[in-house]
């Protein structure tokens, strides 16, 4: 009697079972090799002790971590009001660029110019220009707050990207859906609102998740025009303790937020790929 029958498996199952076991063993061994190499080799580097002291200082970390978390609340705040504004403005720009009525022609031009400009300029430049430029007009408090103009810079930049993603989403809905909706007597507007947009938005959720993650990180750019958020706070502690560990602490805090979000976005992407197949 062949071996696979004795094990109660089909020939193919036995083969796949063996293959799986083999790859598990190889993956395990290679992971151990890499980890061991890092643990043993990195400390052998001549500057390791210095680096360890200035980047991975436990005492500094425990002292600054709670304050960094505190400063991170500023990031979350800016993120929380920017994200909805980006979603709304982005969708409006996307719709403006597809407007067909001749009366809306200026809107179309504006939409195109908007996306071209704000996708073409580095975020940090936009933050500088708007964040320093507009309060420079001599606006009274609180209208000269860098929170407002810094957020606006992020909103403008990200809306340009988000609008392009929404447009791709709208294009991804098959034209036959439009035909079907029109054939029922619905108006162009109703077709867009009831039939095309719900499908378009659903199609681009994973891509927009990635934009959210990028935004969460780019909020830190506002530190250049004033707000004391986590990156700036870490900089303050770096100077205070003459130690880089607060930056590592800030990185850890970012990762705590972004890794689950990234995983979730990847999961959504993978699910969408499966559904399309």
């Amino acid at each position: 009697m062949p071996k696979y029958k004795a094990a109660g498996m089909t020939r193919r199952e036995l083969y796949e079972h063996q293959q799986r076991r083999r790859s598990l063993i190889i993956a395990g061994i290679s992971t151990i090799c890499v980890v061991v190499t890092i643990i043993f080799l990195v400390p052998l580097a001549p500057g390791w002790e210095k680096v360890q002291k200035s980047f991975f200082n436990g005492a500094v970390l425990t002292k600054t971590f709670p304050k960094l978390l505190d400063a991170f609340r500023v990031n979350i705040m800016i993120f929380a009001w920017s994200a909805p504004a980006i979603a709304i403005l982005g969708l409006m720009i996307a719709l403006a660029r597809d407007a067909k009525s001749p009366a809306l022609f200026p809107l179309r031009i504006f939409g195109a110019a908007f996306t071209d400009i704000f996708r073409g300029v580095p975020v940090i430049l936009t933050v500088y220009l708007i964040g320093f430029g507009i309060p420079g007009l001599g606006l009274p408090r609180p209208w000269n707050s860098p929170f407002i103009w810094g957020s606006l810079a992020l909103i403008l930049t990200y809306s340009a990207y988000v609008a392009e993603i929404f447009r791709a989403g709208i294009d991804s809905v098959h034209p036959s859906q439009r035909s079907a909706a029109l054939s029922l007597g619905l108006s162009e507007r109703q077709v867009m609102k009831d039939v095309i947009l719900p499908q378009a938005i659903r199609n681009v959720v994973p891509s927009q998740m990635n934009m959210l993650i990028a935004l969460q990180k780019d909020v830190s750019l506002l530190s250049f025009i004033g707000p004391v958020e986590i990156f700036r706070q870490a900089g303050v502690y770096k100077s205070l303790f003459a130690n880089f560990t607060p930056y590592v602490g800030a990185a850890i805090i970012f990762l705590i937020v972004t890794i689950p979000a990234t995983r979730y976005a990847d999961y959504l992407m993978a699910r969408q790929m499966r559904e399309r197949r």
């Binding site: 079907a180 909706a181 039939v195 719900p198 499908q199 659903r202």
Partner: peptide, 12 residues
């Protein structure tokens, strides 16, 4: 009214 080859129901 019109009915299409590929149904074209709204999937959502």
């Amino acid at each position: 009214g019109m009915v299409f080859q590929n149904f074209n129901l709204f999937p959502h």
